[in-house]
Write a protein that binds this DNA or RNA. Structure first.
Length: 840
RNA sequence: GCGGACGUGGCGAAAUCGGUAGACGCAGCGGACUUAAAAUCCGCUUCCCGUAUAGGGAGUGCGGGUUCGAGUCCCGCCGUCCGCACCA
């Protein structure tokens, strides 16, 4: 009778047993080597997505494998549970954000459980619960005491309809993403975290992260954006409202003798002042503000300027340079004004050509004063036409100019960062309340730690737009902790990125009375392997690196980098289908017919679209629950690991998951063959044993390298070899060992087989099989024989055969003899145990 | 525009050090079993010439180069994708 694996029964059974035995609980006091494996925790949107399944399966395989190799593994799961969708649901469906979120968590947890992940659920946390965000408030106060938190007036994107602040990413073409209303700039008092204090450290720390993708490190480097240069003051030839100088920044102070004009942003204070009495300038400035900052616009936009009629005085030559207001100068970078050197900066050159300004060369690769064409020269060279720095190389000239400016007191060497301090105020309900009180007498007063957590009120309404905390009848009214007079609670809540900036430490240590225990957390930290999507390359990963440094700065933890290893996995994609009228069709609606697809119900032809990321709008979504129902957890897990390298996109296909399901059953039949055949002849199968031990070794290193697709291929090869092998003691051993090799990937099947084979205990508790090094070396090798680099034949010989013998055998190989037709080779190249190449 | 990654059969992909290109899976084709289907098993499957399980030729985006030998190294193109975006 054919054995068919029954995942419906097996999955639930083993999940229950693992639960009962607390198999995956991490022991804080273990003497084993530690391994912290973490996947980015999900936002509880309601359903898990196939992308989550891929992400968590990868982490699970690594976690289970590390357990088998003798590690004490921490592999936790939680919920990034604050955020806007819950408030949107509250507005649309009239449910409380907390109820909505908690029921989503319950649903998603049930879904995750069905996949049999080896998670320590005892450490589960949700950021929306007071036991988490209360500790976050305590940490926020610690950072405040350390001087890392401050308030400042800041221009924000204000949505006048939703009556709330929007993040830059939520403003699309100048309009609120939800309301569609034109966004206003408003000055509001906002809470900030001093991330810029750690800018240099966050940058140099990247060099220590040798287990991070270069791509992510580069993105962070660009985001932090360090520029070193000279900040200096030009004297103005006309005093503007009491101002006699304009401050500029340049990364190329060496080119200062090539400056032919200066330019400032339309919003520069001097420009604003001048515009008061110059309507043409005011109009021009308005034009500058109107043009968008969208990629396409910037690229095509012409350099435009307005000559103010004022000049700046060159600090060395005393020459008068015209001062322009220019649309390419940004107020929020550097000082909002620049010295322009057209010969050595492309933007300055474009501008100079348009307004007929001089373009003197001051750096030359060959010392010649060649005229500048349409391209600015930005390469290395020697300074010319530059007074006291003539003849110097660029770097020396930079230093010389900075030294002179500092000596004469009109400028100083400076570093400018693109990174801004992190604005964490949100005018939302569903977030961590910022633990401060505003008192008319005492000012901004921190909530005393013994009064934490500041808990969100439950009785809120979402009938009208705006922040429900702000209009709650009682919540914000409190007495000042200092003077006892009536005062007002801060009604802003924290950006949810704060919540995800330390959850990994709370997983490692979760006491009731403090955010974490230093010693316990340090035993686990840093996270050994962190796995998640590339979309978090900058924000989340940078914030978490900052927050960990901030805690380190406060003496809370002896760790600076939270994630030693980072892996960014690819997306799960799917074909898209469209009907003739252009509407998207879901996979269930279409049917394969011959080479193409038709609508199942009507037979109407369907056009096949691109393979894209699964999304509701394109209707190419596959629900994890449905496929688990159909094929069981193991087939789904196996598919997630097969074929595509984990960092690349994985195309979901029905034939692919069916292939996985077929293999699950092939394994199941193979495992059944151990008892059934009874044909263990006691004989040894050396070839199979060699294959087995090579596979044990390969699969182990593939899993460590997260090359799951390769591990899967090796397991297929071994299964093929076992099926072809004749019954023997070796074959029985190989089958039993195969169960161990697949255990991290298809754990339910492995447990079922282990029990079925009469083995004691759980396979989850069995160690990874040992490799016999003697079996890793072949005693016979197949050698390629080439003539002039072209393969002509192969010969199989004993390993380690001396050069002369190989040459003789190669010359004697029939195909070779025919090809060279008796000629004597001029040269013979022999690579021992690999190949012989005859040069005629 | 700047920066980065990638380009291998019909498809997803292997090839860890410059040494037999295409392992493994999917799809496809042929066969066995079956009344039939499903399931399963066996075989073939880069392209071209060839009756051939003989043999040969071409072949890793394109054009060059280095080398006894290049998917891999170097130079120059082309294409796709991703990130950033007037950053002084």
């Amino acid at each position: 009778m054919q054995r068919r694996f029954n995942p419906l029964e097996a999955d639930a059974k083993w999940q229950r047993i693992w639960d009962e035995k607390q198999s995956f609980r991490a022991d804080d006091s273990s003497a084993k080597p530690r391994s912290y494996v973490l996947e980015m925790f999900p936002y509880p949107s309601g359903r898990i997505h196939i992308g989550h399944v891929r992400n968590y399966t990868m982490g699970d395989v690594l976690a289970r494998f590390r357990r088998m190799t003798g590690h004490e593994v921490l592999h936790p799961m939680g919920w990034d549970a604050f955020g806007m969708p819950a408030e949107n649901a509250a507005m649309e469906k009239k449910v409380h954000p907390g109820d909505w979120t908690r029921s989503n968590i319950a649903n998603m947890k049930a879904q995750l459980k069905r996949l049999g992940f080896a998670l320590d659920w005892s450490r589960e946390l949700a950021t929306c619960e007071p036991d988490y965000y209360g500790q976050e408030q305590a940490l926020f106060l610690d950072l405040y005491e350390a001087g890392l938190v401050y308030r400042k007036e800041s221009a924000v994107n204000w949505d006048p309809v939703d009556m709330t602040v929007l993040a830059n990413e939520q403003v699309i073409d100048g309009k609120g993403w939800r309301s569609g209303a034109p966004v206003e700039k408003r000055k509001l008092s906002q809470w900030f975290l001093k991330i810029t204090q750690f800018a240099d450290d966050l940058l140099s720390g990247l060099d220590t992260l040798d287990q991070w993708p270069d791509k992510v490190k580069l993105m962070q480097e660009n985001w932090i954006g360090k520029s070193v240069g000279l900040q200096f003051r030009f004297k103005l030839d006309t005093v503007v409202a009491g101002t006699e100088t304009i401050e500029v920044f340049s990364t190329r102070p060496d080119t200062i003798f090539g400056a032919s004009f200066a330019a400032m942003a339309a919003d520069h204070p001097i420009a604003l002042e001048l515009a008061k009495n110059d309507t043409k300038l005011a109009t021009f400035a308005d034009e500058c503000r109107k043009t968008g900052t969208a990629a396409a616009e910037v690229e095509t936009q012409e350099k435009l300027g307005y000559d103010t009629g004022i000049s700046v005085i060159h600090p060395f030559t005393g020459a008068k340079l015209p001062l322009f207001v220019a649309n390419f100068v940004l107020m929020d970078y550097g000082t909002g004004a620049v010295m322009a050197v057209p010969a050595h900066d492309q933007r300055d050159l474009d501008f100079a050509r348009k307004y007929m300004l001089a373009t003197p060369r001051v750096v030359s690769p060959d010392g010649e004063d060649a005229p500048i064409g349409d391209e600015a020269y930005v390469g290395p060279g020697t300074l010319i036409n530059s007074d006291f720095i003539d003849g110097m190389e660029v770097e020396a000239a930079k230093a010389a100019v900075i030294a002179r400016a500092e000596g004469e007191g009109w400028g100083q060497g400076t570093t400018v960062w693109r990174l801004r301090d992190w604005g964490v105020s949100r005018q939302r309900y569903w977030g961590t309340p910022i633990p401060f009180i505003h008192c008319e007498t005492c000012g901004v007063v921190p909530v005393p730690k013994d009064q934490l957590p500041v808990v969100l009120p439950e009785d809120v309404s979402f009938d009208i737009p705006g922040n429900p905390l702000e209009r709650h009848p009682t919540w914000k009214h409190v007495d000042c902790p200092k003077c006892g007079k009536a005062a007002r609670r801060e009604t802003d809540t924290l950006d949810t990125f704060v919540d995800s900036s330390w959850y990994f430490i709370r997983f490692a240590s979760q006491p009731d009375d403090k955010p974490f225990d230093k010693a316990v957390a340090e035993q686990w930290m840093p996270v050994g392997q962190y796995i998640g999507g590339i979309e978090h390359a900058i924000l989340h990963l940078l914030y978490a690196r900052f927050w960990t440094r901030a805690l380190n700065y406060c003496g809370k933890i002896d760790v600076k980098e939270p994630f030693a290893g980072l892996f960014t996995q690819g997306m799960v994609t799917h074909e898209t289908y469209r009907a003739r009228d252009g509407r998207w069709l879901s996979p269930e609606e279409v049917e394969k017919q011959g080479e193409g697809y038709v609508i199942a119900a009507t037979g109407e032809p369907v056009s096949l679209g691109r393979v894209e990321k699964m999304s509701k709008s394109k209707k190419n979504v596959v629900d994890p629950d449905d496929i688990i129902d159909q094929y069981g957890a193991d087939a789904v897990r196996w598919f997630m690991l097969s074929d595509s390298p984990p960092e690349r996109d994985l195309p979901w296909t029905v034939s692919g998951i069916e292939g996985s399901w077929r293999f699950i059953n092939r394994l199941w039949r193979l495992f059944g063959a151990v008892d059934e055949s009874g044909e263990d002849t006691g004989t040894e199968d050396k070839v199979l044993m060699r294959k087995l031990h090579q596979t044990i070794d390969d699969v182990a290193s593939d899993i460590e390298a997260l090359s799951f697709n390769k591990a899967v291929a090796k397991i297929y090869e071994l299964a093929n070899a076992i099926e072809k092998a004749k019954p023997s003691a070796s074959r029985t051993e190989a089958i039993r060992t195969l169960a161990l090799l697949v255990a991290p990937m298809v754990p339910h099947l492995a447990e079922e087989a282990w029990a079925d084979m009469g083995q004691a205990g759980l396979i989850a508790d069995v160690a990874w099989p040992d490799v016999d090094p003697a079996l890793l070396v072949e005693d016979e090798v197949t050698i390629a024989v080439q003539v002039m680099g072209k393969l002509r034949d192969t010969i199989t010989v004993a390993k380690g055969l001396p050069k002369e013998e190989l040459e003789a055998l190669a010359l004697a190989a029939p195909n070779v003899a025919r090809t060279i037709e008796g000629a004597t080779p001029k040269k013979i190249i022999v690579v021992p145990d690999r190949l012989v190449n005859l040069v005629i």
